[in-house]
Design a protein around this nucleic acid. Sequence first.
DNA 1: GTCAAAAAATTCGCTTATCGAATAATAATT
DNA 2: AATTATTATTCGATAAGCGAATTTTTTGAC
Lengths: 159, 159
Amino acid sequence: MENRVQTSLIALRRILRATELNARTLARATGLTTPQFIVLSIVAESDEISPKGIAARAGVGQATATSLLDKLEARGLVKRTRGEIDRRVVWVTATDAGRETLDTAPDALQEVFASQFHRLQDWEQAMIVAVLEKVGSMLNAGTIDASPMLDVGAVDRKQ
Amino acid sequence: MENRVQTSLIALRRILRATELNARTLARATGLTTPQFIVLSIVAESDEISPKGIAARAGVGQATATSLLDKLEARGLVKRTRGEIDRRVVWVTATDAGRETLDTAPDALQEVFASQFHRLQDWEQAMIVAVLEKVGSMLNAGTIDASPMLDVGAVDRKQ
DNA sequence: GTCAAAAAATTCGCTTATCGAATAATAATT
DNA sequence: AATTATTATTCGATAAGCGAATTTTTTGAC
């Protein structure tokens, strides 16, 4: 039914809003701006990533990524290293200070989710995991092959 | 298991990323910037809303909301009207042009989701609806009592 | 009723984000 | 060897965003 699609999308938007607000809160807690925080998170998640990759994952242009990295590097939260095999690329890694910053940031969303999650029955938890993964792949699968006219490059290249 | 929480959060982030990229794409398709698009959507969803409410829902400051509204109003996509009972507040509504803009915007995410969704079995669809709503309320429940410093009122008041 | 406090929107000044185009360096292709 | 691609960066210009101050209006206290 069309209704279910509608309901799902509304629920999705609600989830989206909650996570967005959380990102802002987190960013403030760390003294970073939201985009800076997002970039730092991406860098910390991957042990080595290029500015191009960061741009793709953060959904911003390469120029923007460079500018954000400049600020993070100036604060000593990330480090840039020229690639040795391919000297065009720059490898970005999180410094200890960078990881520290992320670790000490209290992730309200995560905590809230975890606490609520633990209240659920086992089968409910399993159901949530399954559905979230399913929806994630649905959305991602779609983005890739359904809209080639849009700049999907960024989405494609995400590893 | 802590693992399930982790897995869920990763899946959530993936969903988030997809929807974020979609928002940017949509914004470009309409000739608006992403924040402008978001604000216009919020306005169109509610038949009447104040700048303060918009700010809360969009997760930005009041000053920012005003500035975004200025631009939307200049393009004739929204209209401001002084409140009659309380003349401090301004009621913002979407104009026909504003609704038109949103309607004609091809919502890639929505289409992709819908097409994937329809392939599923009935029980799977039902499960997705249930889980997404559950997760939404879990996250929002948290947001409300975990961070009262944010004006979460708007989230409550959403119809 | 008047005066002070609160509330809503706006303005202002300043910083950050963001993009596109141009540039520089390196790699790949021919 | 020369051309083309790729990667990052710089540059210039616009938009987003914040906090503080301002304006208008309402509410509360006395």
